[in-house]
């Protein structure tokens, strides 16, 4: 395996709400290899965004990181002070959150978003250089710099705004680009544009991409690795080809079968029965056991560890045995 650029160890995060505590990320362990593309897949409210927000330390005010470490280039980001964090944000790790439609300041032209970002990182570019750089990036995302740079956000369409955000994210050639649902809330054609764009970025640049999606088809198209999240836990991680050929976790099997059956249209769709777990009052043991046809007694009591299998994929399920002691906690 390649060197891990980002390493997450035992990360847990929760939200405090009136009704109690939402445990949205539990004991997460992840390694992201340099120059790889990883898709984080899961249903809505499975804790995908929380994981990313915890890693980038951008949880909403009621979110807390309760434990864990996030190593970027062997430094624990969670321990760094705000000023250090502010400096590595965007220069090293660029994170484009969901809700691209409202992420640009309505009172500022597009170009000023570039200018502010450059000036805030004390980079000595002249206004002209910033404009050049921004134009170059906008061309990369197939936008016409002449008109877009001097437009206000409300003059752009949803797909254009999403592309502006991606261009903005590439401003400092970051090592890691994190995207939360880059294609949701867009029409099919624009979705296809964005996917194509991300593919090009992946091909032409030294960049590590992590993106969140609930659309497993997009994950299949773009990602080298897929991380499946369920009920705030990582339940499976494998490379894309393997996971499609031979999904391990019963939930992943269900997920992949459900889209395969749509694609092949043979027999009736094999969707997963039941509802996703509440993160407020999660079931004990494996979070998937109430919906799992293979559930046994142990699944109701204990949370399975994420273990490494012989084919180097990882799964958190009692149906599998670890490949010779190499247990990830």
């Amino acid at each position: 395996m390649m060197k891990a650029l980002l390493k997450v160890e035992n990360l847990s995060a929760h939200y405090i709400v009136k009704e109690g505590t939402i445990k949205a990320a539990n004991n997460i362990n992840l390694e992201i290899a340099e120059n790889s593309v990883t898709a984080v897949v899961g249903e809505s409210a499975s804790g995908k965004s929380t994981l990313i927000e915890a890693i980038t330390m951008s949880l909403p005010p009621n979110g807390r990181i309760s434990s864990g470490k996030v190593f970027y280039k062997d430094n624990d980001i969670l321990k760094s002070d705000y000023e250090h964090l502010r400096k590595i944000r965007w220069t090293e790790i660029a994170y484009v959150p969901q809700a691209a439609q409202q992420s640009l300041n309505p009172t500022m032209k597009v170009i000023d978003h570039f200018v502010d970002t450059v000036k805030s990182h004390n980079i000595k570019w002249s206004n002209h250089e910033i404009r050049e750089r921004a134009s170059e990036l906008l061309k990369l995302v197939r936008l016409e710099p002449g008109t877009v740079l001097d437009s206000f956000p409300n003059q752009l369409s949803g797909g254009m705004k999403q592309r502006v955000l991606i261009a903005l994210a590439l401003l400092f050639d970051p090592k890691i680009l994190i995207l939360d649902e880059p294609t949701s809330a867009l029409d099919v054609i624009t979705q296809a544009h964005i996917v194509k764009l991300l593919k090009e970025i992946k091909k032409n640049r030294d960049i590590t991409i992590i993106f969140i999606t609930h659309d497993i088809a997009i994950a299949a198209e773009l990602a080298d690795y897929i991380v499946v999240i369920y009920g705030g836990h990582v339940i499976e991680k494998a490379d894309t080809i393997k996971i499609f050929k031979e999904p391990k976790h019963p939930y992943t099997k269900g997920l992949i079968n459900s889209i395969m059956s749509i694609l092949s249209k043979d027999d009736e769709p094999k969707g997963i029965k039941g509802d996703p777990p509440s993160l407020l009052n999660p079931p004990p043991g494996c979070k998937f056991h109430p919906r799992c046809q293979f559930a046994s007694e142990i699944c109701k009591k204990e949370v399975p560890d994420l273990i490494k299998l012989d084919d180097s994929s990882k799964v958190a399920c009692f149906l599998y045995k670890s490949a010779g002691g190499d247990v990830d906690e």
Partner: peptide, 26 residues
């Protein structure tokens, strides 16, 4: 609470700039 404030913070924009151009102007 607007998304563009959060996105500016994520971009590492300085607090003083956020207070002026993002919060006050809006």
């Amino acid at each position: 609470e607007e998304d563009y404030i959060r996105f500016a913070m994520i971009r590492g924009v300085k607090d003083s700039t956020i207070a002026r151009k993002y919060i006050r102007n809006n």
